[in-house]
Design a protein around this nucleic acid. Sequence first.
DNA 1: TAACAAATGCACTTCCATTGCACTTACTAT
DNA 2: ATAGTAAGTGCAATGGAAGTGCATTTGTTA
Lengths: 137, 137
Amino acid sequence: MQTIEKLLESKDIRITAMRLLIYKFLAEKEIAVTLSDIENAFEKADRTTLYRTIKTFEEKDIVHQIDDGTGITKYALCEKGCNCDIETDLHLHFHCNNCNETVCLTEHKIPQIKVPNGFISENVNLVVKGICDKCSR
Amino acid sequence: MQTIEKLLESKDIRITAMRLLIYKFLAEKEIAVTLSDIENAFEKADRTTLYRTIKTFEEKDIVHQIDDGTGITKYALCEKGCNCDIETDLHLHFHCNNCNETVCLTEHKIPQIKVPNGFISENVNLVVKGICDKCSR
DNA sequence: TAACAAATGCACTTCCATTGCACTTACTAT
DNA sequence: ATAGTAAGTGCAATGGAAGTGCATTTGTTA
Ligand SMILES: [Mn+2]
Ligand SMILES: [Mn+2]
Ligand SMILES: [Zn+2]
Ligand SMILES: [Zn+2]
């Protein structure tokens, strides 16, 4: 059995053609994708199916959602050993103002953020905007 | 002449009744507000006017926009000496998961964030989510 | 193979953001 | 003060993304 199948099975997700394709699509991309991106890649499939597939992946911690400030939610595969289930997104995200792409900087963890007395920090969203490596050279 | 009038004038914004009212409304609030919040406060005014007023304020760096992850953009007055025009929002924002309110933590500047080689950081959006001081006691 | 549960597709809805255009108000120059 | 012009306001409509109800299809299990 393929590794993707194994992964889905281990998360109690039924293996369907659509899910395998979407998973592969996400795995090939190094950048975070929008629902529209997936839609464009699978024109034969219905938007709802893609939407619900992503939602299923999200619930099962296969992908995590990224709010990069563009107003359109993006998604990216979780890394091995990612614990999105416990705390949301310890790594930071980079959004390129030039090519409009967003990437996970999984190596770059979010530093401890101090909040005033009385405030309790539960999780943190950190998005750096600027020029990505592809656009800067 | 009142201070608000002076401020608007200094920013080359025409003084209108609506703008003064909206400015005062924002000044009274300690929390970031949505367009709907303003709408509810000024039921006689048209939504478009409120929308464009806020946009004008934003362009002239009187308010700054806040994306707290709720999907609804919020706005708050810029502090004196705020340089939103140069870089966006050096301070962090706190969103309460309990009361759903978002506040500017203007005293809490965003720490320097390291990005990988080739990436150029232009600005940073940092939102901390958790329980606010009002809700935690 | 029958029975059941989950996945998919279609249509529709909601919510917020944004725009075009007509009308009104405020400023400026005579 | 008045006319002319530019900016502000209100109404109506649009668009995009997210989400839902329900019928149909597909997959799993007995
Ligand atoms: Mn990520
Ligand atoms: Mn702020
Ligand atoms: Zn780029
Ligand atoms: Zn609170």
